[in-house]
């Protein structure tokens, strides 16, 4: 307890009152989007909300995630967007034109190299949104993901694809 207080007092002014500057910016932008209109009053209320909400929820975010490179994160975003479209066409094709017994559904385990919680969450979300795979569960120690595939002819190939296409990129993004 006393230790925690000592830590609190060493934080700078910005860390104390503006713990997550990026979150403040995003919240303000989101408020303006919700208003569907730009006005000075809306901006002020958005800034107030954007400062207060991180202050009151800071206990849920003990350490802000560190993003190494924003260009790589943006590239990853567009890669995933494109893969979502491809995934949807693929899954729609399987649903409409394949008989049910042609599909080979399967649970498989993806061992994780990434340890950052935010990175694991992003990877799990990406796996769910992209071709024929849904992430179902995380190991209790956070070292592997349980993934269900709609059509998995070759398990090793699917795992290698997930690891090289998404996890390697996420490892570069999250330090």
């Amino acid at each position: 307890m006393t230790e925690a207080r000592a830590v609190r007092e060493t934080r700078s002014f910005r860390q104390r009152w503006l713990p997550h500057p990026l979150l403040t910016l995003i919240l303000t932008g989101f408020w303006l989007l919700l208003l569907n209109d730009f006005s000075m009053g809306g901006l002020v209320v958005g800034l107030i909300l954007g400062t207060l909400i991180p202050l009151y929820t800071t206990n849920f975010w003990p350490s802000p995630p560190r993003v190494e490179s924003y260009p790589k994160a943006a590239a990853y975003f567009f890669l995933v967007m494109w893969d979502i479209v491809v995934a949807n066409v693929q899954v729609a094709y399987w649903i409409l034109f394949w008989k049910n017994d042609q599909l080979k559904p399967k649970f498989f385990t993806v061992p994780l190299d990434i340890r950052v919680p935010e990175g694991i969450a992003t990877l799990a979300g990406t796996i769910t949104m992209t071709p024929g795979t849904v992430s179902s569960d995380l190991a209790a120690d956070g070292r592997s993901l349980l993934v269900h595939g709609l059509h998995v002819p070759d398990e090793a190939e699917t795992i290698a694809n997930i690891k090289s296409r998404y996890e390697a990129r996420l490892l570069e993004i999250f330090a």
Binding site: F107, F108, T109, P111, D137, L138, A139, A140, D141, R143, S144, L146
Partner: peptide, 12 residues
């Protein structure tokens, strides 16, 4: 389910 590959089971 397939094993986790670690000493702990699935979180559920």
């Amino acid at each position: 389910l397939p094993p986790t590959g670690g000493e702990h089971g699935w979180a559920t």
